[in-house]
Amino acid sequence: MATAWPEKDDHELLALIQDGNGQAFAALVERHTERFYRLAYRYLQSKAAAEDVVQDAFLKLWENPAIWQPERNSKFTTWFYRVVVNLCLDQRKKKKPEVLDNDAIVADDRATADELMMREQEQKMVEKEIAALPERQRIALNLCFDEGLTNQEAAEVMGVNLKALQSLIMRAKTTLKERLKAYL
């Protein structure tokens, strides 16, 4: 079982990783896997593909830790989000987007059968319309509606200023409001 090292921040763990410390790497992975998986899943809509992307991203960091340059990046999470997004884009180029099937929709046991069916339908439509958005609008939306990421951080991940990000979000939402009007 890897040491969690809660007292060490991400920068400290990364410095140790650059010295070849496997335990520091394990601590970083355990600390952040979930959040990057969630982003990758929102983008790829596939558990297997999202897990592959997160694994590839972390292994890329482990194999070549010099890619992390603390003087260029203020926050590890902002930088790593960028790495994950780029890998998601590569993944989409390689594969055709998978059709969201019923098994991928997480059910709420407490809902009635009708409510469940309605929610499933709603989710399917939302994901379908988001998948149809232009790439940059889709990335912006996925980043901004990911918990724990501010709009400013999302803008940094995308390498744009805040205004440009807000413009992307606005355009995405305008399109979605039109296409999902039956559900709003």
């Binding site: 558990k47 997480v106 939302v126």
Partner: peptide, 11 residues
Amino acid sequence: LLRSRRVEPAS
């Protein structure tokens, strides 16, 4: 709707 998008839990 956007905030309630479900994410299948990771392994």
